[in-house]
Amino acid sequence: MAKNLAGDLLVASANRLVDGVVVYLDDAGQWTTELQRAAVARDKRGGEILLERARAEGFGVVDLLLVAVTEDVEGVLEPVSLREKIRASGLTFDAIAAEAVRYA
């Protein structure tokens, strides 16, 4: 079944300018690589405010965006879209197979 991509919960994300690494804006206005430390906006208006804050802290990052997330009962955040899941947790396969590094 199609998921609700709009989502109610939003976090602000970007790529770090210096190395391209995926980062999220935390409550202190710092960019963190940990999705679980991201500041969460709980409605559309909150999202707009979050994006404003992200822009204000945007000097060292590029490609700012809001990411729709879900939150489970223990407060663990999970992006809604596959793209954002991959941005948050990396490749979905082993980049180099074990055999490929065997030769030396």
Partner: peptide, 17 residues
């Protein structure tokens, strides 16, 4: 394109090989 590998990828060791 060995079975199961990402097509077109080569490790540094494979390139040297």
């Amino acid at each position: 394109k060995p079975a199961g590998a990402p097509p077109g990828d080569a490790s540094a060791a494979q390139m040297e090989g």
